[in-house]
Amino acid sequence: MKQGNEIVTEDDLHKYVDGELADTKAGIIAAAVAADESLKEKVDQYREINRRVREIYDEKQPGPLPARLLIAVSARSGLPVMRIAASVLWFLIGGLLGYVLQGQLDSNEFVRPLPVEAAFAHAVFVPEVRHPVEVNAAEQEHLNAWLSKRLARPIAAPDLRLAGYALIGGRLLPDAHRPAAQFMFEDSAGQRITLYIRHSLDGRASSFSYAQSNEFGIVYWVDDGLAYALTAAADKALLTKAAEIVYSQVNL
């Protein structure tokens, strides 16, 4: 090996640093670099650049995977209208639901995660002035009976007056597999909160979870085969309080 006499090109150095050289050639360059202080300095700097780039961006790994990315994966092509509608909604929902990937993958609810479905329904119907609900609170008994029939489970609008919310009414909604229900409530200032109820696909009971978007907070849980999600532009404490009320009334 002719150390020092080898002509080491700039390209050789980059290839050497990036592991692009075959063993023999890499050996020759390694020897040349070892023998030449200025080459060694360059190689060290190139390595330092790689190291720093990784350091910067590995540190900036954000939290859980946003739900919208998971939805993109499970999106079915061919319905451009739906895609446009979805992007409009995502704009409203603000993208980043702090959503945990783990657990969702194990369950069938992955396709349309509960808080995502609930947030969609919330974003669509809450701004409605004239038709926020299909059946209003004046016909609450009918509403309960109707939704119970369609969901094939006894469903009743909870009483959220303790949390400061009065029932506006409710509606039937399509979900991925079976009909779902949405109840809407309003406080004295006109702030609305919705309760989304659907069949839980795996039926495993779960404790309260919280998801956050730019616009809404969502507290959701699974209990006795039904999945519940409370959505509002409110903080976690208020939502949790309301969720506890719902939970205790369902389990009377």
Binding site: P62, L70, V73, L105
Partner: peptide, 21 residues
């Protein structure tokens, strides 16, 4: 979920990292 979707999800973290950079 099928194999394709699984592979896609596996790559999300590195796609995000690269896109952020």
């Amino acid at each position: 979920m099928n194999r394709f979707e699984e592979l896609l999800i596996e790559e999300i973290p590195s796609l995000r990292r690269y896109a952020r950079a």
